[in-house]
Design a protein around this nucleic acid. Sequence first.
DNA 1: TTGAAAGCGCTAACAT
DNA 2: ATGTTAGCGCTTTCAA
Lengths: 332, 332
Amino acid sequence: MTTIYDVARHAQVSPATVSRVLNGRASVDPVMAERVQQAMRELSYRPNAVARNLRLNQTSLWAVIISDIGNPFFTSMVRGVEDVAQKAGFSVALCNSDEDPEKESRYVAAALAQRMAGVIISTSGRASVINKLVEAEIPVVAIDRQLRGVNLDTVLVDNTHGAEMATAHLLDGGYRRVACITGPRRISTAAERLRGYQQALRSRGIRPADRLIRFADFREEGGYQAMASLLDETEPPDAVFATNNLMTVGAMECLVDRGVEVPARFGVVGFDDIPWAHLVKPSLTTVSQPTYDVGRTAALLLTERITNPTKTPSTVTLRTGLQVRESSSRPS
Amino acid sequence: MTTIYDVARHAQVSPATVSRVLNGRASVDPVMAERVQQAMRELSYRPNAVARNLRLNQTSLWAVIISDIGNPFFTSMVRGVEDVAQKAGFSVALCNSDEDPEKESRYVAAALAQRMAGVIISTSGRASVINKLVEAEIPVVAIDRQLRGVNLDTVLVDNTHGAEMATAHLLDGGYRRVACITGPRRISTAAERLRGYQQALRSRGIRPADRLIRFADFREEGGYQAMASLLDETEPPDAVFATNNLMTVGAMECLVDRGVEVPARFGVVGFDDIPWAHLVKPSLTTVSQPTYDVGRTAALLLTERITNPTKTPSTVTLRTGLQVRESSSRPS
DNA sequence: TTGAAAGCGCTAACAT
DNA sequence: ATGTTAGCGCTTTCAA
């Protein structure tokens, strides 16, 4: 591997000059600069970022740790992050924790060890993991999910409001017994969306029934199981609000398998879109999130924090919207 | 930031001993080892992987450069890579090139500069980019797409065979004028799948017509446009084979918009599955790929090459299968 | 078994 | 404008 010294020798200058050329410093004679450039080409020199990082004690890499690479929510979000990162001169390394706290912890450890410039994380729940980043003073932005007891830059959506809209929409459409399939209690989005569901019921004088609530795992299979168990109730629901896209798909599959007619006999609303929602029959009514903007905003917050580490953390909440499609509209 | 020296001082040993403890070398007195461990805890020491990498001139990071994070093909593949990587002690950094050669080139440059341990890449086309990796002697495995003129470990699927099955299936189902929407010519999968389509026609004595072939961009929008233009032909087709999942979706959308009945008046087969294919109506007949295994195999090849850099490159071709669903079955 | 010391490739004082 | 040199944090040879 050719080093800066090889280049220096070849161009008959000092390593310092090569370094200056490399970093585009102004104070270099154009003639010399050209000689150095040529030497680099001739030796096909490749700067060693590892050495540079060590010397500068900083890197230009962000880690984006997401909880499920199979969830389309994140793919669009990642694009938002990338677009901002690139303009700010950072590269993005995506890490998939698959909702597994241990995997997440491993990636955080790696980010720490590699002295990554910053981390954007959708945490699977443990505050202790995030705290390691905070203690190490690595700039962090939490995304999608909130963490109690830690004061962090955070990008969220108005989960409670979105869930309330969804539930209200079902009730207004004439469905009587609206159930809810939500995610793990420890995850803030699951809790907030459940709360929105409950508020919508209460504001219409309906007392939320525990028998119509299921806690699943934000995965497709979990949604299927939860739906099945709801249908097995002695007094089954006639509609369901599922708090993420994958569980909505699982619930729909269950309904198809059981031959339950949607939306005629059963209403369905999900949280977060799925791709090709319009090709699915019946098309799914969903609470949509501005996923690209979530990523963009997080990246913007991260760049700010990197340039100004002492700034007080802020939380940005973006708006959701109800996309009414076929699955929630009972023919009248 | 506490260093190995701080720990050494605190534990009253030499930095060398701390390093030995850190790397689990046997030749350390257990009593001392414990003293060092404790010191590390008390100072909440975090090893600096950057320094370690510099010293060892190697890292434990893989770059996986994929061409479209929005394509579900890759999400499953990435899981296959991760599972193997983790067992072999590597972390995976995912990079999304978005079919943009320039972005891809940037990520390759980053992988090079960071002296990544290895790269798995689904290239968007330029051999020059890959050559940089080869020249720098970074272990590389090409995935999904082949590159002419470069001798690399490669994992592919039997594209031609899959495309042939798909086309034959449509012809056997009674469709007469089968069109093909394929991807950019420079991408091997696009070319091979087109060839399979042509072979199927020829083997039935049908001469492939250029007017029934479209070159799109492997994106949804491209599929839509191509389908629209096919329908606008004076003699339009009565079936289409689309060579990837996203373009199939686009084509379907176009057919829906134009009110063309699938499969009654028009047959559709796509290459590669989409998630929730069973919820889409009509459900899509597809050529399915063993995506997880593609990732797994690539990761296996990469670990082999890392341990044995001089081994001759091999190409592994995995089998595809035809998943017959509704979109290709004309009611008889 | 343990320690002293060199050096991985780079950047930035500081000196010229 | 250019060069000399120390040192980022770690591992490893060599010596004790």
